[in-house]
Computed example of a mutant assay.
Amino acid sequence: MPQWVRACATDDIDEEDLIRFDHGGASYALYHSPEGKFYATAGLCTHENVHLCDGLVMGHLIECPKHNGQFDYRTGEAKRAPVCVNLKTFATKVEGDDVFIEVP
């Protein structure tokens, strides 16, 4: 059953940036959009299992640090080759100054 887990404080992630969050043996990436919203995806690229936290955020895109493939972190949609498998996304919520992610 999914559960809400505190991942970080809202000021831990600058706008248009991301951080890594590990929980229960899984790695997640948490993003702070230009509009001030928070998003979460699987933390590893679907192409070669590289940690996305080392990648570059541009607007609503995360670029993988290994082969420059891109995903829309809001939807997980693969946007530029070589990635062709979408990222899994996870619900987020903000309570006070804390960001929570819904994990399996």
Rank of each mutant, 00 (worst) to 15 (best):
W4L: 11
V5Y: 01
R6V: 13
R6S: 11
A7N: 08
A7Q: 00
A7L: 05
C8H: 09
A9R: 13
T10H: 05
T10S: 08
I13Q: 01
E15A: 14
E16D: 15
D17A: 15
L18V: 14
L18D: 03
R20T: 12
D22Q: 14
D22I: 09
G24A: 03
Y28A: 06
Y28P: 00
Y28L: 02
Y28V: 06
A29G: 11
A29W: 00
Y31C: 03
Y31H: 03
H32C: 07
H32E: 08
S33D: 12
P34E: 14
K37H: 14
A40K: 05
T41R: 08
G43P: 06
L44G: 01
L44Q: 05
L44E: 08
L44T: 09
T46W: 03
H47V: 12
E48T: 09
E48S: 14
N49K: 14
N49C: 12
V50K: 05
D54R: 09
L56N: 09
L56C: 08
L56V: 13
V57Y: 00
V57P: 02
E63L: 00
P65W: 00
P65M: 10
N68F: 01
G69M: 07
G69D: 04
Q70I: 09
F71Y: 15
F71L: 03
Y73W: 02
Y73S: 00
Y73K: 04
T75S: 15
A78P: 03
A78K: 12
A78S: 13
A78L: 03
K79M: 14
A81E: 15
A81K: 08
P82E: 13
K88W: 10
T89F: 08
A91D: 15
T92Q: 08
K93V: 07
V94H: 04
E95G: 04
E95R: 05
D98A: 15
D98T: 07
D98F: 05
V99Q: 02
F100A: 08
E102H: 05
E102S: 07
V103R: 02
V103I: 09
P104T: 08
